[in-house]
Each structure stands twice: as C-alpha cells, then as structure tokens.
Design a protein around this nucleic acid. Structure first.
Lengths: 226, 226
DNA sequence: CATTTTCTGTGACAATCATCACAAACTTTT
DNA sequence: AAAAGTTTGTGATGATTGTCACAGAAAATG
C-alpha cells in the first residue's frame, strides 16, 4: 500500500483531496521498530510527528522507581508525537513499540506547515485531541472513584473498543495484553488483575480462551461498570 | 473593561489584530452566575463556548452515588465548553461556579466560524489542548503511582501554579480551596487531606495562615513530590 | 524437545486509607 | 450575640488491595 493510501485511513487526513494527500505523503519517511524498542524517550526534545502504519505502541509514563503507567495503547492509523510539536514542551511520555511496528514520520516544520496550509487538518486534529481529552477525563474519574474491580473492567472495555471484534453482542478481544500491562493501565497490581478476571469469569461475565478474552454481553458489561 | 480587552488576555485570541478581535467580541454575550450555580450539566447537549471574565469555576465529573472528581479549577481568562463543540459529543463534565462568576459566551456556529476564518485561533487552541492533555497525563500518572501524601502535594502544586503568588521562593496560595475539594482532585478522602496537610506542616514544608497556605520553598517542594 | 525465560495463579500478611463518629473551630444568618 | 450551618481535626476500626513468595503454565530459544 502506498503512503498516500495509508494516510487516507487516518482520520485527520481523510478530508483531503488526493493531490494534497500526495504532497504530504512525499514528505513522510517510513521507519521500522522491532518489538520492545523505545521510539520516543521521555524528556527528549520532540521534533517529529508519527503515524502508525502497522503494529502497535504503548504510551507510558514512568516514575523514578521504575513503575510505569500506560496512558494508551495505539494501533494502526493512530498517531502520536503531536503534543510537543504543538506546545513546544519536551516529551512528556515514552513511546515503546508493543509489537514490531512500522511508522511514517513527518518533521516538525512539515507538520506545522500542514496545519497552516490545510486548516481542515487543524480542525480535524482539534477534534481528535478533544476525544483524547475526554478519554483522559474518564480515566481520571475511574482512577479517583472506582475500586479495582471497576477500574479493571473499564480497562477491558477500553481494549474491547479499540481491539475488539463484535459478534451479536459478544465482544472478543484477540490477544489480550499481559496482566502487567492491564494493571499499569488500571492503576493496580498484576496480582489483582489476575484475581479480578477470575472473579469476572465466576460471575459469568467474561471468558478466557487462550490469549483471547470474550465479553459475553458487551452492553450489559458496560452498564455494569461505567 | 470592554469585551475585546478581555479577549486580549485569552491566549487563544492574543495573536489577533484589533479589528478581528472586535468582530468576535461583538458576537459574544455576557452572562453571570452566582456561586454554586451549575453552568453546564453533564449529558446536556454542548452548544456554547465560554470564556471566564471574572470568578472561577470547577470542572467535575460525578458518579452515580454522588461522589465527584474535580478535573480542574478554572479562573479568569480560562475557557471551557470547546470539547463538545469540537467532537460533537455531549457534555462529559459538569461546570459549577466556584465563586460568583461572569462569563462571555459564543455560539457553536460562531465558534466554528472563528476556527475556519482564523487558522491562528485553531492552532492556538491546539496548543492549549495539548497543554491540557499533558496535565491530564500527569494527573493520571499521579493517581496511578503515588500514595495519598504525594497526590495531595501534587494537587497543592497545581493550585500554587494557578492561583499562587511567589515571593522569593515562597509561594502563597490565597484562599486555599476546601479540604473536600482538594480531596476530590487528589482522589482521596477529606480526612486524609486534613491529616496530610498537618503532616506537611510538621515537616516544615508548608504553613497554614488562616485561609491561606504558604509553601516555604516551592522548588524544593516540587522536587520532593513530582 | 529440553531449557530458559516470561507470564499467570494463589495463599498469607501487612499497610494504607476510607469510613464512621464526634468535637472543636469557623462562618453566616437572624 | 445567639443560633444554625459549614468546615476542620482526630481517634478507632476494618476493608481493600499491594507486596512477597513460590508453583505451575505457556512461550521463546537454542
């Protein structure tokens, strides 16, 4: 697939004409990272905009003692790196490839040019940031007000929405992330995730099938926990 | 002060020429709310953009059982309401005036027109949203990884940065919010806030002076807790 | 396919913190 | 200036959940 075709799938570029898309596509450079590689380091100067062509990355923050929070897991057609480009501050999060990943990159100046030249991109980007902000707010709420069972359930809902496939009310999350990662998103411990998922199984709400997790009745599940 | 003069202080409008500023100013309508009034209700359709002329508001989310999280406290020249305008979703947070407040409002269509007409506003707004997203990320990190003492300290730092006045390294937060509000921001209980502030006083890091709180050495304090 | 490494399950225990319950110190109202 | 209403301080208690410890399962590696 050509670069331009990839861009077509990215919400913020989807409004553009083919000719404009091609112009941008030419400025982009492709890069690959193998699983577990650090793509961006916290505190380093942010100078690049990234779009994920294939694979997945996790956005994390780390405390001094090495514990990490996962802020988000991003997949195909998602983008990152825009924050420091916009506000000029250094990176505030680490980005690590969660599987082998291919990305498209755009330099700072090309990115900013884009925004100036195509106001539609700026507006689409605003929309995307608004959505992210909303998700962050929900995340903050759940960390503040919910117990670990709820937080874990909400994390599973997040996964279902991003990675899940629905089949008459039943959602299957293929390749559920490790318990440690779930814990780092839900703000709890790995052991608690283990115990809680078992509990949810006993309540007949979910079922584990090897590396997959099935949520029997997604609507009901969402009602119960959010 | 005229409406245009107020706008001048708002970061996202500050790049504009006077003539353009006046055009926008004419479209804005002023409204007043007394302390404790609900300005925006969660779940209601979002149709207006707000700028705070005077006073302060708190941005909250509430759980079914009535407990609330405070996502932010906004003051003069801050704005809100942009999120639903941008992504078309309904309101996700409540806005309550924390003191008597005067606001300027702009209708949905005028706001969106603004963005189309003045790309600079869109870019400035992107910058602002990036900053907010960054703060949210920090908030999420602290809720996930820190104990209550740290979370409360970080909340005090947030207040110091927004409402504080510095005087040779010493920051005074005038009119510290109620313990209950601090607790709702820090994701802890009111009682824990009371005990923790006492603890910080015993450690000679802060001092309470009636309704004010003094942080003796702000840089040191920040280093200790973030 | 044997070995090493990574991931998961589960018990025991301890620490943190929320909750309840008042009293004391304040504001605000009348 | 008394009364009513808020906000704060503090002890006692228990629940939730993190931590440690290790065994078993699964995956990756040679």
């Amino acid at each position: 697939m050509s670069t331009a075709q990839h861009l077509r799938n990215v919400p913020i570029f989807s409004d553009l004409k083919d000719t404009d898309l091609n112009i941008i596509a030419e400025k982009m450079v492709s890069r690959s990272y193998e699983k577990g590689k650090m793509i961006l380091l916290e505190e380093s100067q942010g100078e690049t905009f990234f779009i994920i062509k294939s694979g997945a990355v996790k956005v994390t923050r780390q405390s001094d003692d090495g514990r990490e929070v996962i802020l988000a897991i991003l997949g195909e057609s998602d983008f990152f790196g825009e924050m420091s480009l916009l506000d000029g501050e250094g990176r505030s999060a680490n980005i690590v490839s969660n599987e082998d990943a291919e990305v498209l990159t755009l330099s700072r100046s090309d990115f900013l040019d884009c925004l100036e030249t195509y106001p539609k991109i700026a507006i689409a980007l605003l929309e995307e940031l608004a959505i992210r902000l909303r998700k962050s707010d929900q995340h903050i709420e759940s960390l503040s007000l919910s117990d670990s069972e709820h937080r874990i359930a909400i994390t599973l809902i997040r996964f279902a929405q991003e990675l899940g496939t629905i089949k008459k009310g039943e959602v299957t999350i293929r390749n559920l992330p490790f318990q440690q990662d779930i814990a780092n998103m839900a703000g709890t411990s790995r052991e608690t995730v283990s115990r809680t998922i078992k509990l949810l199984e006993e309540k007949n709400l979910v079922k584990k099938d090897k590396k997959d997790l099935i949520i029997y009745n997604f609507d009901e599940f969402r009602q119960l926990f959010s």
